[in-house]
Write a protein that binds this DNA or RNA. Structure first.
Lengths: 204, 204
DNA sequence: TCAATAACTGCAACGGTACAACTTTTCACT
DNA sequence: AGTGAAAAGTTGTACCGTTGCAGTTATTGA
């Protein structure tokens, strides 16, 4: 009954139980949220459904919103890779523009039934939208480091940090009259010009 | 005993009482915070000191942090004025760079004993620092509107909105190795280049 | 077998909100 | 001027998400 292929590291009983508890919490949370709505489900309900105390729940997840987002690390890796492994001849802002656009459009794809319902839940719940935004912006430091490495700038270089922040922020610049795509395009136009001048870039 | 010179608008009894309650709360909060430290003072302590219920406290102030910041509107007006009334020949990014730099340096001035202690309290309390940052970033909309008006761009123009966001964000781009002033300078260098290209600016 | 460690628990309290009262102030109408 | 109803300010209670703390239980490795 042991299937080594699904368990890359042989976990002890303790770590297995811990992972099981965590999974039970996340599953119960998503199920209840989809069933009754985010606001109608209390943290106590979720803890009860997973048969643990609320104290334990918060040892596994830092907040109610975090019960729904179990990825984070993977997203940051993809972002860093988009810059590091960009096509030859592409400038860094161009790679970022592409990635930001793609990661926004992916939500429209209704490949998976579960995923679609998940996206709807997030978009209909202000708390979850705001939490997702903060997760996104928290990648600023890692992105700045990658940009500095790619350009040979010293680690912590302010220009790189500025570009990292601005590129991430483009995603949330939508104003009332304009649609998101052109807002992003215009913001990146501003960034690409400034960046090319600041770096003296010869790239595309 | 009536002194009309101190009361520009003749307030009714109700509004006078309301203002008094509000002031009593703000005073009690600042006094207790300075005396015992922000974390050591609970919302109930403040409400008790001002002799109102906690429910009433939150009708006057939206959060514990807000008890300390009673300005807001004035700050936004100054920011908008810095752009609208900038010296002739100055570009908008230059006016913003100047204002951001000035508003940061003003904290160093120890003109007023009370003010100095207030600044120390804010800087030593993470919650208050974060709250101040959000207050600052919330001016994005008003600033974007002003920039659009000044350049003749349509209201809600994405480029203007982007510049507004980025200019405000420069204040918080400090990374580990670098000091705040050069981080701001570098971020603005990026913005000014991008802005001039985007607008086709003939200004300084 | 035993001590160290890590997960878990219950409880009290925090900042903050919703709700249904209750009191005071205001203001239009007679 | 007097009355009465709407509007605004205040209150207590109960609850929310969240944290700290002190104590219990289960797993680990020597």
């Amino acid at each position: 009954m042991t299937d080594a292929s699904t368990a890359p590291a042989p976990l002890g009983r303790r770590e297995r139980k811990k992972a099981a508890t965590r999974q039970a919490l996340a599953d119960a949370a998503l199920r209840l949220f989809l069933e009754h709505g985010y606001d109608q489900v209390g943290i106590r309900d979720i803890a009860d459904a997973a048969d643990v105390s609320t104290t334990t729940l918060f040892k596994h997840f830092p907040s109610k919103e975090a019960l729904v987002f179990d990825e984070d690390a993977a997203l940051e890796a993809a972002l860093v890779a988009a810059v590091r492994d960009r096509p030859e001849g592409w400038s860094i802002p161009r790679a970022l523009r592409e990635y930001v656009g793609r990661s926004r459009r992916n939500k429209g794809d209704d490949a998976d039934e579960h995923f679609t319902r998940f996206v709807e839940l997030v978009e209909n719940t202000p708390e979850l939208r705001e939490y997702e935004r903060r997760m996104w912006m928290r990648h600023e430091t890692a992105l700045a480091r990658t940009i500095a490495e790619e350009t040979g700038a010293p680690a912590g270089d302010p220009t790189c940090r500025a570009l990292a922040h601005f590129a991430l922020a483009t995603r949330y610049l939508t104003s009332e009259g304009t649609d998101a795509d052109t807002a992003i395009a215009r913001a990146f136009a501003l960034l690409e010009h400034g960046w090319n001048t600041a770096i003296g870039g010869a790239q595309d």
